[in-house]
Nucleic acid binder design. Structure first.
Lengths: 134, 134
DNA sequence: GCTTGACCTTCCTGTAACAGGAACCCCTAT
DNA sequence: ATAGGGGTTCCTGTTACAGGAAGGTCAAGC
């Protein structure tokens, strides 16, 4: 199967698949004409990668997860450790974004948004603790 | 004031300040010895940038906000537009992360995390809709 | 006067995960 | 023969800096 079909199958851009080969996540065979020939196993790997990336795992985490996936003697604890760490990272990011959102939404709410220059958002950005502005 | 002091004052690494100069966000004067000389106005700008970046605004957004901040004839509507868009982006990111978190936390919860190879997390990653796994 | 250490300077490379595009090859249909 | 829709490699650009090399500067202490 050529890269175009594989791309559709996995829900990934062809460019991304070429990149995954370049960094050694997959190693599809080659036809006589130089075209990549994707096996069923390759397609499974690509789907796996697509899913893992979709859940926000980094490429390096994907590399680890893929290795565990292929290792029939793995311990589920090893998988869980990686996933748990990522889950924690996600929680941290959410908390950070929520903090930004909280501060920023207050500033936005207090801004008239008309044609006058007076703007609490800009005022908030020049002070150290914008929440203290009234 | 030298870059080290300015960095402390603004809560930014010196490296970041040099970068901001390189991309034209600030243009501090130079002493005879070539050292950057930060004025009070420069310090205000750096603090502004530090705050805006801390709220997640992109560098390009910061450039716009900084210009509005310096323009006494601005309309607060222009500022609000930028902030509102960013707020929306933040909301989108939070929603994305929460979706990942939801899926992943279910998978993690269903994984024993022991020394056996059987792992619902890996199973979830190879199917298209891991939530459907029981 | 000399050294030492803490500053400062520029310049180059690397990061994450690809996207865009050029220049070119391959295959099939008309 | 040509046109199109694949495929290939290679190079550049993206975001917002961090790390580090090589070297100039300044104030303090001996």
């Amino acid at each position: 199967m050529n890269i175009g079909q594989a791309a559709k199958h996995a829900g990934l851009p062809a460019k991304t698949i070429r990149y995954y080969e370049e960094i050694g996540l997959i190693t599809p065979a080659r036809d006589a004409n130089g075209y990549r020939a994707f096996s069923t196993q390759d397609l499974h790997k690509l789907t796996f990668l697509s899913r893992a990336r979709g859940l926000g795992f980094s490429i390096e985490d994907c590399r680890i997860l893929l290795a565990l996936w292929e290792d029939q003697t793995r311990s589920s604890a090893d998988v869980k450790r990686v996933a748990d760490q990522h889950l924690h990272d996600i929680e941290t990011k959410i908390a950070d974004l929520q903090a930004m959102h909280s501060t920023l939404s207050k500033l936005v709410a207090s801004c008239a948004g008309d044609n006058r220059p007076d703007c609490p958002i800009l005022k908030g950005l020049q002070t150290d603790r914008p929440d203290e502005l009234t």
